[in-house]
C-alpha cells in the first residue's frame, strides 16, 4: 500500500495574481518618475529587490523599466535608492492610486 504524505504546502500564487488582489485606480499621469540615465550607471539596484509591487524591472540594455500603475505608494524605492535624484517621488492625484479594502 502506498502511503500518501499529507501535503502541507499550497500553491503559491503568481505575482500577477498577488498584485491583482489589490485595487489600483490608475491615473494617466505617472506620479513617480525614474531617471533612466542615472539607473544605467547603478550596479546595486536596491529598488528592484525591495519594491513590494515589483515595479522596477531591469532591461537588457542596462536600464530600469518602471511602471507606476500598481504602486502601493509606500516610499520604499526612494528610501533605499542611494542615487541622488534617480527617483522623483510624489503621491498620485487625489482619489487615485492604491485603495485598500481589508488592511
Amino acid at each position: 500500500m502506498t502511503s500518501i504524505a499529507r501535503d502541507t504546502s499550497w500553491p503559491e500564487i503568481s505575482f500577477e495574481e498577488r498584485i491583482g488582489t489589490a485595487e489600483f485606480r490608475i491615473h494617466e499621469r505617472a506620479h513617480i518618475v525614474v531617471d533612466g540615465d542615472t539607473c544605467r550607471g547603478c550596479s546595486t539596484r536596491e529598488c528592484v529587490v525591495a519594491c513590494p509591487a515589483n515595479l522596477f524591472v531591469p532591461t537588457s540594455d542596462g536600464g530600469i523599466l518602471f511602471n507606476y500603475e500598481n504602486c502601493f505608494e509606500c516610499g520604499t524605492c526612494y528610501m533605499v535608492c542611494n542615487k541622488e535624484g534617480a527617483i522623483s517621488w510624489s503621491y498620485p492625484e487625489g482619489g487615485f492610486g492604491i485603495v485598500f479594502h481589508r488592511t
Binding site: I13, R18, C74, F100, R102
Partner: peptide, 25 residues
C-alpha cells in the same frame, strides 16, 4: 512565502486564499 511555509505557521493558514496583498513603510 517562506514564513508561510514554516512548520509552526503553515497549519494555521492552510487552505487560505490570498484576498489582498498590501505594503506600507
Amino acid at each position: 512565502a517562506t514564513l508561510k511555509a514554516h512548520p509552526a505557521i503553515a497549519p494555521l493558514i492552510e487552505g487560505a486564499e490570498v484576498k489582498e496583498y498590501s505594503a506600507h513603510v
